[in-house]
Structure formats: structure tokens, C-alpha cells
Simulated scan of single mutants.
Amino acid sequence: MKKWLAIGIVLPFILSGCSDEKTESSKSNHLEALPASQKYGKLATSQTALEKDSPIIVTVIKQNQENETMSAVSIQKIHKDTTQKLNINDQIAVLESDGTDVQLNGKPIPQDYYKKMEAGKSYCLYIRPSTSGNNYVLTNDFLSKYPTAKVAHEELLNNHDSSEISTYETLYYTIYDNLLEKNKPIQDANFDNPK
């Protein structure tokens, strides 16, 4: 009798614990976007720092827009993957820039400069796994996404009112030009020799 009474008392707690686990697990599949100010204390100030800060560097083709901030991309080439979880042709979801100001060299940078990826186009991304779901985030906001095709500098970022080029724009253009030069022989999507 005591045995059945003990089971009757303990069983609801066990079942309650199991149902809480399922709730948490299902929550992890949904992205709860944090403001950029919470994701980035500051941005990389060089290409070396960007590469060091990024556990994953991949060349991708954007497939579609899953929602306002989430983009589906297909991995074409893996340049770096410290997680060792990605494979060529994997389709992953990447959270694109979503909002508020971040810091570069101690100065705030407006986020209306970020230009989202376009479907069917190829990009080099510097990313990390998200802490809030089964997706990926840019490691250094707008500094983490570069088209692999040659594009005029003025078309890389969204239009803005400033007539002078800021430090962060100069850094973005420098990294972009370096990537183009480095990948010149394979620039137009010859992905036959990944990794």
C-alpha cells in the first residue's frame, strides 16, 4: 500500500517534468530575435578579427525568405566550420540583420545600411549557431555578409543620407575587395572542389 501511495505521489512530478521538457524543446525550434545591441557589444575592426570571431565561414546561395528576418540558404562551400556539423548542400536558416544600432570603434552604427540577401545569389557568410534555436546568426552584423559576384561599392549597402564614407563602410569595402581578389578564379560559382 505504501509503495502504491509513493508511486501516486511521485508520478505526477515525473510526468510534469517530461511535459516541461517537450515545451522547452519545441521553443528551441523558434527564433526569438534579440535586438542587435544585445547580440553585439562591438564589431570586428579588421578582416583577421572577423575571421577569428566567426566559428563558421561558408559560401551559400540564398534560397528563399522564411520570414521577415530569417533566410534559407544552401551551403556551396565550407571555408571554416569549428562546429563540424555542416555539409555541402545543407540548407540552413540564417537570421539577417534585424534592427538596432551596434558599435564600431565605440561609435553607434545605424542598421538601415544592411542590405538583405537576394534569392538565387551567392554570398560569403561569417556566422555562428544561434543560442535560441536551430538556425544561425551573423557574427558581426553587416560585416558578416558579402556577395561573391563583383558589385559596385555603392550597391553593397542600402542607400543612406550621409555624403561621407564612414570607417565601417571603408572596412566593409576593404574586406569585400580582399574576398573578391582571393576568390577570383572561382568567383562565378565553380563549386566543384568544395572544402
Rank of each mutant, 00 (worst) to 15 (best):
E21S: 03
F13K: 04
L11D: 00
T48E: 15
P12T: 09
I127P: 05
N135S: 13
K27E: 14
G99D: 07
Y114H: 13
S37D: 13
Y173E: 03
E118F: 02
D112A: 06
Q187H: 09
L104G: 01
E66P: 03
A93H: 03
N67R: 10
D177I: 00
H79I: 12
L156H: 00
G120E: 04
P12M: 03
V73H: 08
Q76E: 15
D90M: 00
P12F: 07
L180R: 12
T139R: 06
I57K: 02
Y123E: 05
S144Q: 09
S19E: 05
I92F: 01
T139W: 09
S26T: 13
I78A: 05
P12Y: 11
V60K: 03
C124N: 15
E21M: 06
A6Y: 08
P35G: 06
L31P: 09
Y136T: 05
T148Y: 05
I61F: 11
P185G: 09
F13V: 15
K52C: 10
Y168P: 02
T83H: 02
L156T: 03
I88A: 01
T174M: 04
K3Q: 14
Y146L: 02
K39Y: 12
Y114A: 15
Q76N: 11
Y168N: 04
E155G: 00
P194A: 11
Q76S: 13
Q84V: 12
N178D: 13
A149T: 15
L95P: 00
I75W: 04
L157Q: 08
Y172Q: 03
D90S: 00
E118W: 02
T48F: 08
D188V: 03
K39N: 14
K150C: 06
N89G: 00
D112S: 09
T170I: 10
G8N: 10
S71W: 13
V137A: 05
K80A: 04
A149E: 13
L31G: 03
T48Y: 04
I57G: 06
V151N: 05
E169V: 01
F13L: 15
K115V: 02
S28K: 04
T45R: 11
K22C: 10
T23H: 06
T45I: 13
Q84E: 11
I165L: 09
Q187R: 15
S26W: 09
D90Y: 11
N140T: 06
T139S: 12
V151A: 00
P108W: 01
E32I: 11
M117H: 03
A33C: 08
L31M: 13
N29Q: 13
S122Q: 12
N140C: 06
I75V: 14
P185R: 08
A44T: 14
N140V: 10
I61Q: 12
H30T: 11
K80M: 07
Y173M: 03
I127L: 05
K42L: 07
L179V: 04
Y146M: 05
E118P: 00
N89M: 02
P185L: 02
S130G: 11
S71E: 14
M70T: 10
